[in-house]
Amino acid sequence: MNNDLILLGHGSGGRLSHQLLEELIIPQLSSVPVAGQNDAALLNIGGIKLAFSTDSYVVDPIFFPGGNIGDLAINGTVNDLAMMGARPLCLSVGFILEEGFSKEELARILASMREAAEAAGVAIVTGDTKVVPKGKGDRIFINTSGIGAVEHNLQIDGASAQVGDKVIVNGCIGDHGIAVLSAREGLEIDSGIQSDSAALNGLVTSLLPLGSALHVLRDPTRGGVATTLKEIALQSGVTVTLDEKSLPINPGVKGVCSILGLDPLYVANEGKLLAFVAPERAEEALAVMRRHPLGEDAAIIGEVTGTSSGKVQMETVVGGVRGVEMLAGEQLPRIC
């Protein structure tokens, strides 16, 4: 097989993305190995601790139930900062527009970016716009970068999971991926599912008083909950055991997934976080989340059951046990 080309799967957030980072990008550009990578870089500039992150948005379709590429671009980068426990301060925005793109659609996207930034309490302070010839881009791509202030001394890190930790998610999983998929041309499923796109910095602020009991925060975006948990298990050298029956999943998401042969554990989220919390404070963390508007359906979905080279397993609804691996390639709808 020809391994010289970039495939769509290299952007899936799953194993191929990791391979690309490990083999090509990180050796050239970074001194931090892939296993040590977090959602944002931590910088110490003259004694001031900052988090710095960047992300590009190429979602198709650009408008989908519950959001559009604009609010996604704000919330996504805000969330990457928030996962370090940082308070997002300001963002940059870069647009790549395709010749012929509608100004009216751009105006709608800008309006939702403004609203999302206001809701997250973050300022857009610099930006750039480029236009490429028709056919050389797909309507609109957005890059946002962000800086956040780290005002705690906690070790919130993908490598900090400890045996006994409870794994908590702040609500139903898979909503964003299914909302986008059902809006895609050719599928046209009226699932009624809305994207969960939301800024999580407020929710994180309410969790910080847990102090050193808060070990890991990460948002399960591309690759879904399964891939994110696998990353954390590998980084921390632990075994995570999920309890399938406690996974909060919207019935509509379950339905679409079973029609298309997808597994909700691998479907993207844009307003969810996974928190690893020491067992003695887990119920308190759950209660804090449930009091927050973005955490009403929060649930404890598993725990760290031992040390290992990074295993994730799940007790299924019927009491069987199976392994959980990273997303491999793209999630493809099944054939029969």
């Binding site: 597994d263 799940m314 007790e315 299924t316 609804v317 019927v318 009491g319 069987g320 046990v321 199976r322």
Partner: peptide, 9 residues
Amino acid sequence: IYQFGLRSL
């Protein structure tokens, strides 16, 4: 059979 871990039962 794999997804529900039926072999383990």
